[in-house]
């Protein structure tokens, strides 16, 4: 979080980090218990969390369907420092920052293979020639399986399609991010005025980068369940992105069994919001060959050893996350 908060000044680029808060709605007593546990864990880990009553939620968000709902809203867990970032600006800002620090960014250059000798990775073959490197760091969210396959590695990861949607531009209605706890739906409003929303995975392995109607309908049902005011708002565009879905819902930042080849992937839905932390921990691993304090649990051997990662445990079916 702190990395986000200082990002813009670090990069001299406005990524439009906007901490307007995130609110996870609660619809049952069991959910309140689970969110209480999560909120406490967040505070114990040094983050902030706030449990909101139905009354406060109704007062702050008068347009939310609190009571005339199939699953009435019974509270919410808020993280006030959470929020949104303009994704393109983050990519551009990082690219510019990296470039200024002397990193060569080669566009439209596909890695076609690894050069591996005696269990050691020496470099990568690319569509524009061979590039040698002392350490090779893979971080190709969505394509992890395809890339590491070129090093004959199989991963505890499947690639799934996740759709995202944006509405037409509207005058401001939503202050932060709101998620629906009895279905699959989240929503925020961009600075340009479009509502940005989404929900569940389509649910099947796919690299096609497009989704299908059932999930569009499911997401919009979620939208109407908590925001019945959105009925006449128009959905402007839909995307399908590829998600690295790991088998236990947590990422992997680790060395591989091939000397000199490193891997960062399996971020499920969480990759973008973890970008600064993920990069930070990965850089630590690359520089020191030892996992960063925060990333010790995110290793390949956890599956073999049965090491559970707290707060998760979604099972060996990535589509069930």
């Amino acid at each position: 979080m702190k990395l986000w908060e200082g990002l813009e000044q670090d990069l001299n680029y406005n990524a439009m980090v906007s901490q307007r808060g995130i609110l996870n709605l609660i619809h049952s007593d069991a959910q309140r218990d689970a969110f209480t546990r999560r909120g406490n864990a967040m505070i114990l880990n040094g983050a902030d969390a706030d449990l909101l009553s139905t009354e406060i939620i109704q007062k702050r968000y008068p347009f939310l369907n609190v009571s005339n709902a199939r699953f009435p809203i019974k509270g919410g867990l808020a993280q006030h420092r959470g929020g949104t970032v303009r994704h393109d600006a983050v990519a551009w800002g990082y690219a510019r920052g990296a470039d200024q620090m002397g990193v060569d960014i080669i566009q439209n250059c596909e890695v076609t293979g690894f050069r591996i000798k005696g269990g050691e990775c020496l470099g990568v073959e690319t569509s524009r020639g061979y590039v040698a490197g002392g350490k090779i760091a893979a971080c190709v969210a969505g394509s992890s399986g395809r890339l590491m396959g070129k090093a004959n590695m199989r991963l505890p990861i499947e690639s799934h399609v996740l759709q995202a949607f944006v509405s037409e531009g509207l005058k401001p209605v939503l202050p932060g991010v709101i998620t629906f706890g009895a279905g699959h739906f989240y929503c925020s409003q961009s600075d340009k005025g479009g509502l940005v929303f989404g929900g569940d995975l389509d649910g099947y392995n796919s690299y096609a980068q497009r989704g299908n109607l059932p999930v569009v309908e499911d997401v919009c049902e979620g939208a109407m369940a908590i925001f019945p005011m959105l009925g006449r708002v128009r959905l402007l565009r839909m995307w399908g992105g590829i998600m690295d879905m790991s088998m236990d819902g947590s990422p992997i930042i680790d060395r591989t069994h091939i000397e000199g080849l490193y891997f960062n992937g399996g971020w499920c839905y969480g990759g973008f919001k973890a970008t600064p932390a993920s990069g930070w921990c990965y850089a630590h691993l690359l520089a020191t060959d030892a996992p960063h304090e925060f990333a010790k649990a995110y290793r390949f051997d956890r599956f073999e050893k049965g090491l559970m990662i707290d707060e998760k445990g979604v099972g060996n079916n990535p589509q069930l996350h």
């Binding site: 399986g145 395809r146 396959g149 199989r154 991963l155 505890p156 990861i157 499947e158 690639s159 392995n205 690299y207 088998m247 599956f303 073999e304 060996n316």
Partner: peptide, 14 residues
């Protein structure tokens, strides 16, 4: 080892 492979590892082909 077989069960670990069975439960977790995927070809994930394109």
């Amino acid at each position: 080892a077989q069960f670990i492979d069975y439960a977790y590892m995927r070809d994930n082909p394109a």
